[in-house]
């Protein structure tokens, strides 16, 4: 239990550092941020392309820009929080966790991601 808390604290510190970096530097103008290898290799965008710029925009409070860079990221953040909450509270509310991990939900996520991947390459989102 203590170890778990320690890990959580370390994780929080790391996340905070990353957040500061992404807030301070703009990935679209700095050469220090790695570009997506998939994009470099194939010329096609992957579902995560633009996430770094979107995170920078989010941290700067620019929702519209974040949406522009990677809409999927913006959409998935609340869902990820929900899933993490479900996981943390699994002991107490197993049904909630089971509901947000049900077959239908996972299928929907899969279809949405695939559609996003396809469409953004067709329309250049």
């Amino acid at each position: 239990m203590k170890r778990k808390i320690l890990y959580l604290i370390i994780l929080a510190i790391v996340l905070a550092c990353v957040a500061v970096i992404y807030y301070a530097f703009d990935p679209s103008s700095s050469a220090l941020f790695p570009k997506c290898p998939f994009l470099m290799l194939t010329g096609y965008k992957c579902p995560g392309c633009g996430s770094q710029r979107a995170i920078h925009a989010l941290l700067s409070g620019d929702l519209a820009a974040a949406w522009h860079y990677n809409a999927l990221l913006l959409v998935s953040i609340p869902f990820i929080i929900l899933l993490l909450a479900g996981m943390a509270l699994r002991r107490r509310y197993p049904r909630f966790d089971a509901a947000i991990n049900s077959v239908g939900v996972v299928w929907t996520v899969f279809v949405v991601i695939m559609a996003w991947w396809l469409l953004r390459n067709i329309f250049g989102w």
Partner: peptide
Amino acid sequence: CPPTNLVWSIVCIVLCCWIPAVIGLVFSI
């Protein structure tokens, strides 16, 4: 039920963009 690891698949797809995470999502189903 064993964990579906759905969260981690999504996080990986959104951030790391490597194809294994998509396969992981299929396994989650």
